[in-house]
Nucleic acid binder design. Structure first.
Length: 887
RNA sequence: GGGAGGUUAGCUCAGCGGUAGAGCGUCUGCUUUACACGCAGCAGGUCGCGGGUUCGAUCCCCGCACCUCCCACCA
């Protein structure tokens, strides 16, 4: 048997065990017995250029806990790792790097060279993040690694687009879209964040043809230059007379009509709204309804166009606004301003203010996909944990809008659409090659669409594409649909909902049975982590400092039901202490276990074991049950707490202290020692097994020392609750004993006695199986509480002794100090008073006819018992206040 | 504008119809040969406020207050 170092140093063994497990092929489903039921998880792919952050660490930890646990239960576990090419993110990173290195832009380089640069960059970094996932201990099957931009995944993307096109669900249209001038691409609605911003509402006069003026209110004066009408509500009496007339558009020399349209809210501002169809989604619709022209005054570069006029062309949006306001002022057309809070649309990636612009893009008509997906989730094909997210999902699906899938980027999946000179659109049928000529007119010179797909257009296929779909590969047949998806609620719409739609639509089956949505990791003070705040916690640094086991355990504990997880050094340090505790417990047990033979506990007669041994086995069995139950319900926090509580409070503080006199006692017969040794070893081994999903490294290291087979722990049988180990009597006896010990210890503290001062005590309780059991435990009780004698009887007479009750039995302690000081009497009196009040409350409840009539009999019974216990305790405590004659 | 969630010990959070829990922190004792990343023990809570249902509410229902978050094309 190996020894364990005195100091616990996780860095000494963590990676060694990881490598050994991976090399042994344990992370492949093929390691499971033939015909084992699969358990499948697909990793939410981190960005290829990214570094593992705490959010990843949380999700991957929870997934690994599930995978390791299921693997030990004998399932054929397949956890597929991979990375995402991350269109915008990667392109931006590479562009920035290029700029810094050479001063060139991607346009200087040209598309082909730039894409090659991105590819090289991605290929070089792809291993980094996967190794970081390894560092955490994740038991992924790296032989099945995927990349969202590789051959197989590209085939799936193309197949899906072609299928949607064939079904009439992918279409190209001119629409008002969200345009990010700094990313120079269109964005989907989801990639735009609406931020409440304080701004202004300006009132501006438009001179009316034939005299007078109308005053409009706007938050965007620079768009005046693109106005093509002014609108009022048709029922608005104030303006009825001017509908149909024309107004002079300030600063432009153009005149525009006054139209009536119901989209105008007469109560807002002046009741007159300027209409800028090219730069506002509302106005765009109004323009279409009323046949208005589109005057584009802001270009794709975010600068004013020529159409805005000589004076403004080339200005940025902000400068243009200032100049327009100045110029209006100069012409005396400003009619006031007031502050106004408005939601400003910003690009999720660059934070630039998004410009609504009209352009031709590819869209997916998503309504029918959403409908089918909701029908499937309503059927329970995919269940949400926590359940409340289902509502959010339903709500979003109900109001879903078509998905803009094209992006004006270079890095990504090229859109398989070709156009001939006449503008005919050619999209190959699913599985068909690139077209050589236009399918409509036969023209040969086809031009491929220059755009690429939204990154999520490959991500949403992941549960399908990782297995090689649309081909019916053996993996696809065996492992799809997957078991569970674990991810943050922040990508519920981006990713989860879309994957469900894709799975249900293209395969007919929802892609996972369960979705577990965890919260967002924050810093220790609960603040959002951000680079600017400088409060970002690096999980890898935490692993180096405290060990991956500690990081994992911390994340599991924190992953309760709330949305935020306050994570940081002091917390990880706290759970590193737990790992250390496990280590030290093993260091204690190891030499004792190696002192002699250890039998398999299952081969021993349970009733032949000592009460303490039976107690710990009963508690172990209970803990195993609670851990499994909690994991079934994805309550990682509960499972981790159950382990922590069992191992520390019951095993270490309780059992270990109680068996010391057995294993180290001189007069204890070897048979007894051997039995306890066997139980000690078993409890430790099973604890390590239960711990393994959470702490895969320290558990192996200790198992190696204890049993010589650390590696095998990953495939060890998961400890299930043991019906044969149920022993309520042993549990009651040991728990009573522990309660008595605690009371004696705090009596010592209260009386200022040294913990080493030996006392004589008595336990008063009627003759019963419990009293007999306690009688047998007297030596143990004496050891734990440092007693010189223990008398157990239905009545114990010791003159001047202190009397109390604990756990329902009488406690008599012969304190050295015979006279009760005034201070002590005060304290006792206060206790008595408090207990009396409690008893009175219970009495009144028991006197209540309604309570007796309506409350369940068990509750009434329990209440009576409580009263009995409290009254008994009061009687005993009061006895201490009676003057002892002659003292 | 719509929707969801929160309000429990100094801090971070569990619990959820029958006398309030954990971890950390504070405090008081301990070099008890596994562990000071420890041991033992104490203290600390009108479970946001007001009503209601119930024999009984921290837990269910209705209001209110304050805080989060998500969704949303009103100038």
């Amino acid at each position: 048997m190996k020894e364990l170092d005195k100091t616990f140093d996780p860095s000494a063994f963590e990676m060694r065990w990881y490598k050994a497990q991976e090399e042994a092929g344990f992370f492949r489903p093929e390691a499971a017995p033939e015909g084992a039921e699969p358990f499948t998880v697909v990793i939410p792919p981190p960005n290829v250029t990214g570094r593992l952050h705490v959010g990843h660490a949380l999700g991957r930890t929870l997934e690994d806990v599930l995978c390791r646990w299921r693997r030990m239960q004998g399932r054929a576990v397949l956890w597929v790792p991979g990375v995402d090419h991350a269109g915008i993110a990667t392109q931006m990173v590479v562009e920035r790097d290029l700029k810094e290195r050479t001063g060139e832009s991607r346009h200087d380089l040209g598309r082909e060279a730039f894409v090659a640069l991105c590819r090289g960059w991605a290929d070089a970094r792809r291993g980094d993040i996967l190794n970081q996932i390894r560092r955490l201990g994740c038991s992924c099957d790296f032989t099945r690694e995927y990349y969202t931009l590789d051959e197989t995944r590209s085939r799936a993307v193309r197949w899906v687009f072609s299928t949607l096109y064939e079904q009439g669900l992918a279409y190209r249209a001119e629409r008002m879209v969200n345009w990010c001038p700094s990313c120079a691409t269109v964005l989907s609605d989801l990639e735009v964040n609406h931020v409440e911003t304080s701004g202004h509402l300006w009132s501006i006069a438009y001179p009316l043809e034939g005299g007078g003026e109308v005053v409009v209110a706007t938050t965007r004066p620079e768009t005046i230059l693109g106005d093509t009408a002014v609108a009022v509500h048709p029922d608005d009496e104030r303006y009825r007379s001017i509908v149909g007339k024309r107004v002079a558009l300030p600063l432009t020399g153009r005149t525009i009509p006054v139209i009536a349209d119901a989209f105008v809210d007469p109560k807002f501002g002046t009741g007159v709204v300027k209409v800028t169809p090219a730069h506002d989604p509302n106005d765009f619709e109004a323009g279409k309804r009323n046949g208005l022209d589109l005057v584009t005054v802001i270009g794709f570069d975010g600068k004013m166009t020529k159409a805005a006029g000589e004076a403004y062309a080339g200005l940025g949006r902000a400068e243009a606004r200032k100049k327009v306001l100045r110029d209006l002022d100069a012409r005396g057309l400003r009619r006031g301003e007031k502050s106004h809070v408005l939601p400003l649309a910003r690009c999720q990636r660059s934070d630039t203010v998004v410009e609504p612009l009209v352009s031709i893009q590819w869209f997916v008509k998503i309504g029918s996909l959403a409908g089918k997906a909701v029908a499937a989730t309503d059927e329970g094909d995919t269940k949400f944990t926590p359940e409340l997210w289902k509502k959010t999902y339903d709500e979003w699906m109900k109001n879903i809008r078509d998905w803009c899938v094209s992006r004006q980027l270079w890095w990504g999946h090229a859109i398989p659409a070709w156009y001939c000179a006449d503008g005919h659109v050619n999209v190959p049928k699913p599985g068909a090659p690139d077209p050589a000529a236009c399918g409509t007119c036969g023209k040969k010179d086809l031009v491929r669409d220059p755009d690429v797909f939204d990154t999520w257009f490959s991500s949403w296929l992941m549960p399908l594409s990782v297995f090689g779909w649309p081909e019916k590969t053996p993996d696809f047949l065996r492992f799809y649909p997957t078991s569970v998806l674990v991810t943050g609620f922040d990508i519920l719409f981006f990713w989860v909902a879309r994957m469900i739609m894709a799975g249900v639509w293209f395969d007919g089956r929802a892609p996972f049975a369960d979705v577990v949505l965890h919260g967002l990791v924050r810093d220790e003070k609960g603040q959002k982590m951000s680079k600017t705040k400088g409060n970002v916690v690096d999980p890898l640094e935490m692993c180096d400092e405290f060990g991956a086991d500690a990081v994992r355990f911390t994340l599991a504990v924190l992953s309760g039901t709330g949305r935020d997880l306050p994570f940081g050094k002091t917390r990880v340090a706290g759970y590193r202490s737990f790992a250390t505790k496990v280590w030290n417990a093993a260091r204690f047990a190891l030499p004792l276990i190696s002192e002699g033979e250890c039998a398999d506990v299952d081969a021993l007669e349970f009733s032949s074991l000592s009460t303490v041994d039976r107690w710990i086995l009963a508690r172990l069995s209970d803990a195993a049950g609670r851990v499994s139950e909690s994991l079934e319900a994805y309550r990682f926090d509960e499972a981790a707490h159950a382990l922590y509580q069992f191992f520390w409070s019951e095993f270490c503080d309780g059992y270990v202290e109680m068996i010391k006199p057995v294993l180290r006692g001189a007069g204890v017969p070897e048979v007894e020692k051997a039995r306890t040794r066997s139980v000690l070893k078993r409890v430790l081994l099973d604890s390590l097994a239960l711990l393994h999903p959470f702490m895969p490294f320290v558990s192996c290291e200790i198992r190696e020392a204890l049993n010589g087979d650390g590696l095998k722990l990953a495939l060890e049988k998961w400890p299930e609750p043991h019906a044969a180990w149920k022993d309520d009597a042993a549990v009651e006896a040991v728990e009573t004993l522990r309660a008595v010990v605690t009371r004696i210890r705090n009596l010592r503290a209260e009386n200022g006695l040294a913990q080493t001062e030996a006392l004589a005590i008595g336990l008063e309780l009627p003759d019963s199986p419990l009293s007999k059991e306690l009688q047998r435990q007297v030596p143990l009780l004496r050891h734990l509480a440092r007693l010189k004698s223990v008398e157990i009887s239905s009545k114990v007479d010791v003159a001047g002794a202190f009397r109390d009750a604990v756990a329902g039995i009488g406690l008599v302690v012969d304190l050295p100090k015979k006279e009760t000081s005034a201070e002590d009497r005060g304290k006792i009196a206060r206790d008595v008073e408090r207990l009396r009040a409690e008893a009175a409350k219970i009495e009144s409840r028991l006197a209540d006819e309604a309570f007796l009539a309506r409350a369940p009999a068990a509750v009434v019974e329990k209440t009576k018992q409580q009263l009995e216990e409290i009254s008994d305790r009061v009687r005993r405590l009061e006895g201490n206040l009676v003057e002892t004659p002659g003292s």
